[in-house]
């Protein structure tokens, strides 16, 4: 089977900050992979390299067997048409109503009639548990948890075959986190999509991932089935999943995701 994404020896630096230092990862069609790692380990940078928002310095990055590391803006735009992204802070457009946010791609990229796009947007909002009334509000008028749901509805509005989730539960309480995790799992299953989630929330990682990979020191240091992570014999993984302050992981307080 041709992998959906193949990352080989991927490097990315910002000045003297070497964020990615030879990342190797393979993601197969239809599977949900979660990348875990501490703050500032380069998870967001890796995601943005995959999306083409940040160019990788060197290495190989393939999608469906095709090299995309040096793709043009036009090729990138075409590739992104089948990808839905849920951003960390939701990244909803303040000046548009909730339903217009969800229908954004349908109206602006697919040039669908507004009435028809609104109908689809309201269906997607219903799928994530939001009412028509919420659709008429602006993002600033709804809670953070509801904004995440809207962001999820926007990501799945065009029924993409690839979904990226950037810290989908950060800043949410455990109950809302659980709701978002269930919704992500349901959306991925319903669409039969390939999903990549980056998070440092272990509960979320176990819930939404088929496989989990851990990023540390700019490399994937462990990768395996989500159910096996508790028994992983990697001291870095054990320290991370148990949240221990002492262990082999160096706290790099001076390195942050540059995005």
């Amino acid at each position: 089977m041709t992998p959906k994404f193949t990352l080989e020896n991927l490097y990315k630096s910002f000045g003297d900050k070497h964020v990615l230092q030879g990342v190797d990862l393979t993601i197969y069609p239809g599977e949900s992979v979660v990348i875990i790692g501490g703050s500032g380990t380069g998870k967001s940078v890796l995601l943005k390299c995959l999306l083409g928002l940040i160019p990788a310095d060197r290495g190989s990055l393939k999608m469906d067997g095709k090299e995309i590391i040096k793709e043009s803006a036009v090729e990138n735009e075409a590739r992104l048409k089948d990808i839905g992204v849920m951003f960390q802070g939701s990244a909803l457009f303040d000046s548009l109503k909730v339903w217009e946010n969800v229908a954004f791609r349908l109206i602006n990229a697919q040039h669908m009639e507004r009435k028809k796009a609104k109908k689809i947007a309201l269906e997607k909002l219903a799928a994530v548990g939001l009412t028509e009334k919420v659709g008429e509000l602006f993002p600033a008028e709804i809670s953070g948890g509801m904004q995440r749901r809207v962001a999820l509805a926007r990501a799945i509005a065009t029924q993409p075959h690839i979904l990226f989730f950037d810290e989908p539960t950060s800043g949410l309480d455990p109950i809302f986190s659980s709701v978002i995790n269930d919704l992500i799992r349901k959306c991925v299953n319903d669409l039969g999509a390939t999903a990549l989630t980056i998070t440092h929330d272990m509960n979320s990682a176990r819930h939404v991932g088929d496989r989990i990979a851990m990023l540390y020191g700019g490399k994937i240091i462990w990768c395996g089935p989500a159910k096996d992570i508790k028994e992983a014999d990697n001291p870095y993984v054990q320290q991370f999943i148990q949240g221990l302050s002492k262990g082999p992981i160096q706290l790099e307080t001076d390195v942050r995701d540059v995005a």
Partner: peptide
């Protein structure tokens, strides 16, 4: 990240 979101929404 709204500008990044625009790009990912093919705009």
């Amino acid at each position: 990240e709204q500008l990044d979101a625009l790009v990912t929404l093919s705009t």
